[in-house]
């Protein structure tokens, strides 16, 4: 399968004179062509940092990125500003939560989209650009009139649609949406999410969706990566993980979300709070809050365990003592219950 983005030992550290904050740690993640990956985590889990670091939008003066992120035969971590400029919008684009605020209030929407089109195709004819923009506006369910309007004439939902249209203008290979629908109302959000899914059936785009809301991932993504305190807990197919979460953190997270249908179940939540990220921890980072924590969890970091298919989990409950041996989950779990 075609790999679009491959992160290897990806670390992001914020630093100032006195201390370091380890925001993202040892991420190994591959995104294949046509995937839609949802990255979920609570605030402080490093999900936005991860996105910004992939995009290389973090200020260099106080951040340190190590490892590699391979995208379009380039290592984005090492890429120069000039190389990045060539990739941005064209192959890698982004929609932020407040992307709509980036629109200039004194220019018409059409002019602003045109500007971005010309970044990569400076010699394009006007008609060509107009056709492209109008097709894009239709794609995100906006009328062509928007082309001649100013940002203040549009509502938040429409502006966010414009931002999505802009991000798609050069048919990027990878689209990152960082809480792109969080600020919107339920009804508007629901509609935009549906449009995104529909639109991808015709486009050739791979998407990373960063959100704190698992239900958004459930409706729009096929894969999910669960982040906690900057570390990956579990990665895999949405349909597997939401039905049968393996990692205790994912379990806790899912049991904290009330459901709209079916029986009312008591919400349990997870006790405790996020660890201090300016320190390095020896064991599993979730161990202090984990109800299944064992002796081992405080001592060593769990390594990656391959479950069925592409699903992976980082937890001692599932780690194999010998490679090639059958997973001895039941034994481990029984031990915990005892």
């Amino acid at each position: 399968m075609d790999r679009v983005l491959e992160l290897k030992d990806f670390n992001v550290t914020y630093k100032n004179k006195t201390k370091k904050v380890y925001a993202v740690k040892d991420i190994n993640l591959t995104i294949n062509k046509g995937d839609s990956l949802g990255i979920v985590g609570e605030s402080g889990s490093g999900k936005s940092t991860l996105a910004m670091a992939i995009l290389r939008l973090l200020p260099e003066r106080n951040t340190e990125i190590t490892g590699s992120s391979n995208f379009a035969n380039k290592d984005l971590v090492q890429a120069s500003e000039k190389e990045l400029k060539e990739i941005r919008w064209k192959e890698l684009s982004v929609v932020f939560q407040k992307s709509m605020n980036a629109l200039s209030p004194v220019h018409r929407i059409g002019e602003q989209i045109e500007d971005i089109y010309r970044v990569h195709k400076p010699n394009a004819r006007k008609e060509e650009i107009f056709d492209r923009i109008k097709a894009l506006l239709r794609l995100v369910n906006l009328s062509e009139r928007v082309f001649k309007m100013y940002p203040h004439e549009l509502s938040g939902g429409m502006l966010q649609r414009v931002a999505i249209a802009i991000s798609l203008i050069h048919d990027p290979k990878l689209l990152i949406m960082d809480e792109a629908t969080t600020a919107l109302d339920v009804v508007t959000q629901g509609q935009i999410l549906e449009e995104i899914v529909k639109m991808e059936q015709t486009l050739d785009v791979t998407r990373i969706m960063i959100t704190h809301d698992i239900s958004v991932v459930a409706t729009t993504c096929n894969k999910i990566a669960v982040l906690y305190a900057g570390e990956l807990m579990e990665v895999g197919y949405v349909k597997d993980i939401l039905k049968e979460p393996k990692h205790p953190y994912t379990k806790g997270l899912l049991s904290s979300i009330p459901s709209l249908s079916g029986e009312k179940e008591t919400l349990t939540g997870i006790k405790g709070h996020l660890p201090d990220l300016s320190q390095k921890y020896e064991g599993c980072i979730f161990a202090p809050r984990c109800e299944h924590a064992m002796e081992q969890c405080g001592k060593s970091k769990p390594s990656e365990t391959q479950l069925t298919g592409e699903n992976r989990v980082w937890c001692h409950l599932y780690s194999q003592s010998d490679r090639g041996e059958q997973l001895d989950i039941s034994k481990n779990l029984a031990e915990v219950n005892r």
Partner: peptide, 25 residues
């Protein structure tokens, strides 16, 4: 009806028809 049908759910088995609402409040 529109509000509830547009609420994303974590239950994957649940199939709901979303109701479209034009415009914003």
């Amino acid at each position: 009806q529109a509000l509830i049908s547009n609420t994303p759910s974590i239950d994957l088995d649940e199939i709901r028809e979303t109701i479209k609402v034009e415009g914003e409040p």
